[in-house]
């Protein structure tokens, strides 16, 4: 039995401790917002936060996050109110197919937590691990910059 906090809720699951967190989230917890893209740490689609730090859930055995706090894309908004990064995504019409965007947003939120006003180069460096085959990169850059400004104003 492995217990952790999932989007502020305490959960426990009886699963193979080697099972990557991604499959625990998707198959067992039925939180399908976190996506499978490569299963090999190469694309970032499966990015979630463990105690605020972004990790690739496809490579993280669930045992490694026991008793920790996990935030997934579903846990980002404050009820009806979108997180400023999510809002910036909507304002800039970032998603095309949308499939990579959970991971992109989770990475972007982590970036802004580390660096409140990232330069374009900072964004490129930080976001390199998240692939978008549809090609939404220019808008991701814009949205992160917009969210950065908005989050500064709120502070």
């Amino acid at each position: 039995m492995i217990s952790f906090t999932l989007n502020k809720e305490k959960v426990s699951y009886d699963v193979d401790p080697n099972m990557p967190l991604l499959y625990v989230l998707r198959d067992v917890a039925q939180k399908t917002g976190t996506k499978f893209g490569c299963g090999a740490g190469q694309c970032g689609a499966c990015t979630v936060h463990v105690d605020g730090t972004p990790i690739r859930s496809c490579l993280t055995p669930v045992s490694a996050i026991a008793d920790k706090s996990i935030t997934t894309i579903e846990g980002l908004a404050d009820g009806e109110k979108l997180h400023p990064v999510q809002q910036a995504w909507v304002d800039n019409n970032v998603p095309q197919c949308g499939y990579c965007q959970s991971g992109q947003i989770m990475s972007a939120v982590a970036l802004l937590a580390e660096n409140a006003s990232p330069s374009e180069a900072d964004i490129e460096t930080y976001m390199q691990g998240n692939i978008c085959r549809c090609g939404t990169y220019p808008r991701i850059k814009k949205a992160i910059q917009q969210a950065a400004v908005q989050m500064q104003e709120v502070k």
Partner: peptide, 26 residues
């Protein structure tokens, strides 16, 4: 305003990989 973007950014849009049916096998 584009339709569907809010669901995507909240991870609640449904893709084929996301379908869950009780008792299903993978």
């Amino acid at each position: 305003k584009l339709l569907g973007q809010e669901k995507i950014v909240q991870g609640t849009a449904t893709y084929a990989q996301d379908i869950q049916v009780p008792g299903m096998l993978i």
